[in-house]
Design a protein around this nucleic acid. Structure first.
Length: 286
DNA sequence: CTTCTTGTTACTGA
DNA sequence: ATCAGTAACAAGAA
């Protein structure tokens, strides 16, 4: 499940590879993924090039150079963006043994560049999407997305003000993209663990010390996960098709029924909160 | 066979 | 207005 660190990793990888290259062709293999008509989408892209790529929350924005349009991509649960240079054919006709083929039956969009390199969009569950939008639509979308948790603007004071006068459950609040952008199920559970706060808590019961601790935990966990190039336990891979290595550092996610690494007293428990599978330590998260 | 999973939106009802 | 709950989307794993 790509959350902020995974999307950040993909975008940083793609930044090195897909910009300023002429697009020679576009293949749309599953129509529902692209929210524009295939004709419009192809006509806009072919002959143009990508000028800029950046992340906002879990969204990826790719600006075109000539057309006054931006592509927005959301990977939802199982979307992958994988860049592949053209397959080199070794003399003798057989391809190199460790050459990976990244297109498969779940490849729904392919961008072909003039230099023969390719960008694949794979998505097992097909919930992700691509859409060409105007700068107005882009501003509108940007407005709906909350603050970037790694930005300077996301200060302790900002966080505290965001919580003030709200009465919701902490878990659903942290997952809500209109408040803070980019947190998903994994990093919300991990941040709550780090700050020793139970996922059952309500916002108006948090004291200053807890708010400070949670604010620090959010920044911390995201920065560390980016450094490890994200968390892979099934679908997520970076733009080269490689797994992220943050799984080993997780304290609660995917550790149900395993002993808490911190207090070593109880096992990590899995419950359902805000409609989401939630993992926490009943002994050290209060 | 059924149930569960995940991100997001839409909808319903308190 | 705010908040919670659920369905829907698709495919695969258990």
């Amino acid at each position: 499940m790509p959350e902020l660190p995974e999307v950040e990793t993909i975008v940083n990888d793609l930044k090195k590879n897909i910009l300023k290259k002429k697009i020679s062709g576009v293949e749309i293999l599953k129509k529902k993924i692209v929210r524009n008509s295939p004709q419009t989408f192809k006509k806009t892209l072919v002959g143009d090039s990508f000028q800029k790529i950046f992340r906002r929350g879990k969204y990826i924005f790719i600006e075109l150079k000539n057309a006054d349009k931006t592509i927005v991509v959301h990977l939802r649960m199982t979307g992958q963006l994988i860049y592949q240079k053209d397959k080199k054919i070794v003399a003798g006709g057989h391809s190199q043994g460790d050459e990976l083929e990244f297109s498969n039956k779940h490849t729904h969009v392919i961008i072909n560049f003039k230099d023969k390199s390719q960008l694949f969009y794979n998505d097992v569950r097909q919930f992700g999407f691509w859409q060409l939008i105007s700068s107005d639509e882009m501003a509108e979308l940007d407005n709906k997305i909350g603050i970037e948790p790694l930005s300077r603007e996301f200060s302790y004071v900002y966080f505290k003000n965001l919580l003030t006068d709200k009465n919701s459950n902490i878990k659903s609040f942290l997952l809500d993209q209109k408040f803070i952008a980019g947190l998903g199920n994994i990093y919300v559970d991990e941040a709550l663990f780090l700050s020793r706060i139970s996922p059952y808590r309500r916002l108006n019961t948090l004291n200053n010390k807890e708010i400070l601790s949670l604010h620090r935990a959010i920044k911390n966990i995201l920065a560390k996960a980016i450094f490890s190039r994200g968390t892979t336990f099934n679908d997520y891979v970076d733009a080269s098709g490689n797994k992220g290595s943050f799984l080993a550092f997780l304290n609660v996610y995917q550790r149900d029924k395993k002993k808490c690494k911190r207090c070593k007293k109880e096992n990590i428990k899995k419950v359902k909160i805000a409609g989401r599978g939630t993992r926490y330590c009943p002994a050290c998260q209060k």
